[in-house]
């Protein structure tokens, strides 16, 4: 078989790909960890009546959604050095850059999903909570947010699935995530097999993501 002819034992190849997959998983989980709560803050700022607050946030969302993520990765990597005046310049390492760019980018998308969800809750829910004496934060966290989460699960799952695949973009910074490792292996052994193994990994991961979201939707289906 091709793989063995070139002297690369399958096990060794799998362990290389496994290490790449681990990096992909780290990017995936860290991005979600930061972008999900950050997106909520951005959504709240976006909906604030104060123009000084919502206007810059609108611009932020426009830029983050309106430019390629791959370009944002490059920007965040070079900006601390090239955009700061001499004396303040610093170099940022690759992996944190990737997490920052991904978290900000996904937070912008999540923010708009949160906003859609929050604005779909009828005004009457706020009024009922107000006359019962709930505070604003009780109203938001106990009455509004649980209903929002149920409504936004499908669009959120879309983004999370995209994130699994987008993680391959960090290779532009030279990070050895799954796709880059697979590509290198593919050229080294002159075979497409590593790429298909990587493809299978993304597919399995998104199958798990899909199952998890299905389970979450089922769990919240006790009310309408």
């Amino acid at each position: 078989m091709f793989l063995f002819e070139h002297g690369a034992p399958l096990l060794k190849q799998l362990s290389l790909l496994g290490a790449g997959a681990l990096t992909t998983l780290r990017i995936f989980f860290l991005t979600l960890l930061f972008s999900l709560p950050l997106g909520l803050l951005i959504a709240l700022a976006r909906m604030a009546p104060q123009k000084w607050l919502n206007a810059p946030v609108k611009l932020f969302i426009l830029v983050m959604r309106g430019t390629p993520l791959i370009l944002q990765l490059i920007f965040f990597y070079f900006a601390p050095f090239y955009m700061l005046p001499e004396g303040l310049r610093f170099n940022i390492s690759r992996f944190p850059t990737a997490i920052i760019a991904f978290s900000l980018n996904y937070a912008a998308y999540f923010a708009e999903i949160y906003r859609g969800g929050i604005e779909s809750i009828p005004q009457g829910q706020y009024e009922a909570a107000a006359v019962l004496g709930f505070t604003k934060s009780q109203t938001f966290f106990r009455i509004i947010l649980p209903q929002v989460i149920k409504r936004i699960l499908p669009p959120i799952s879309n983004e999370v699935i995209t994130l699994v695949k987008d993680s391959a973009l960090v290779q532009v910074l030279g990070i050895s995530e799954l796709f880059r490792v697979a590509k290198n292996e593919a050229s080294r052994v002159f075979s497409t097999t590593p790429l298909f193994i990587a493809g299978l990994f993304y597919l399995i991961m998104n199958w798990i993501v899909t199952k998890l979201f299905e389970a979450a939707e089922r769990k919240l289906s006790y009310y309408r």
């Binding site: 009922a128 006359v131 004496g133 209903q147």
Partner: peptide, 20 residues
């Protein structure tokens, strides 16, 4: 106002029950 609010109850045309 919070204390006063507790003395006042309100029933809406559209019920506004909490669905969850």
């Amino acid at each position: 106002l919070r204390k006063i609010r507790l003395r006042l109850g309100m029933v809406f045309q559209n019920f506004n029950l909490f669905p969850h």
